[in-house]
Amino acid sequence: MKKSISVLAATLFLLIMVSSASAARFSIGGFGGLNLPIAQDDASSGALFGAKGRILLLPFLGLEPNFCFAKYGGKDVDDVRGKSYTQEGGDITSFGADLVFGSMSSMGKMRVYGLAGLNSNTYKREKLEDESGLGVAFGTGFEFFPQEMLSLEIRAKYHAIKVGDGGKVHLEFSGGLNYYFGTE
């Protein structure tokens, strides 16, 4: 696990260093939304929030280092001798980077993009040991610029996390604000 985190950190660092030479425009922003588990009988939907930056590497490609805290809602375990117990869903802290591809440097007021990324995750549940695992994310987003330096964004992201030999999968729906620095 430490190895994968190191590889991820090194990759991130390299990409940021490479991009810093050419990137004239970057943004920082925050987001919040809904975390929807897919096919998980032990968890229900919860809230998520996080922060991210975006560095434009090429006119059609950006890199987004990101941090996200996502909570799973509790889920009832029914039919335990006729009783129902609510299990705590746990939460996931993740950090990583997404590649964002689309018309990133367009001066238009609206952008639609796709994204794919890798992240490192820690899955925490009460009274159980924390589990860490690599994750992958795919998604799409829509960004609207009411002002040149400010954008509103909504996105949907499929996020799969390796927990032990199994996988935890959820959909993340979020909305956020980004503030841009520099010129295109």
Partner: peptide
């Protein structure tokens, strides 16, 4: 296949 994992109780 963990990318499409299912959790059962």
């Amino acid at each position: 296949c963990w990318l499409f994992g299912i959790t059962l109780v």
